[in-house]
Write a protein that binds this DNA or RNA. Structure first.
Length: 113
DNA sequence: CGAATGACGCACT
DNA sequence: CAGTGCGCCATTC
């Protein structure tokens, strides 16, 4: 197992822990996987996922609450299936963002709503 | 090594 | 909310 492989596994592990009906941002996942600032890499990892993967990749969205996945229809369908409200390509982070309680309380997300 | 690319993120206009 | 610019970093050519 190479180092990169372990990091990828970290990311996969984090994503697998996102509860149904909630979403997490790429940056959030990166931070949880000790890859602070590597949000891009998280996206790249997701793009490398096998087609039949069991990983809930659809619960990962951009920091602005938008679906940046090329398979927007697929992701939107999956999210709605879990009860997440999706408007076009946008999800309300205020309502659906996953907060595992390891994050500080004073996060600047008052602009949501 | 240099240039271009990408399922990102933040600041500015 | 839309558009643009810059920073970030692994991968690809």
């Amino acid at each position: 197992m190479s180092l990169k492989n372990q990091q990828i596994e970290r990311v996969v592990q984090v994503i697998s822990k996102i509860p149904s009906g909630s979403v997490a941002t790429y940056g959030q996942v990166a931070e949880m996987a000790n890859l602070n600032g590597r949000a891009r890499w998280v996206g790249r990892i997701l793009s490398q996922l096998p087609v039949g993967t069991r990983l809930p990749w659809h619960r990962v969205i951009s920091s602005s609450g938008r679906i940046t996945n090329p398979n927007i229809e697929e992701q939107r369908n999956r999210l709605r299936q879990e009860g997440v409200t999706v408007r076009e390509d946008r999800v309300s982070l205020k309502r659906f963002r996953w907060n595992p309680a390891h994050l500080p309380d004073g996060l600047p997300r008052s602009s949501e709503g």
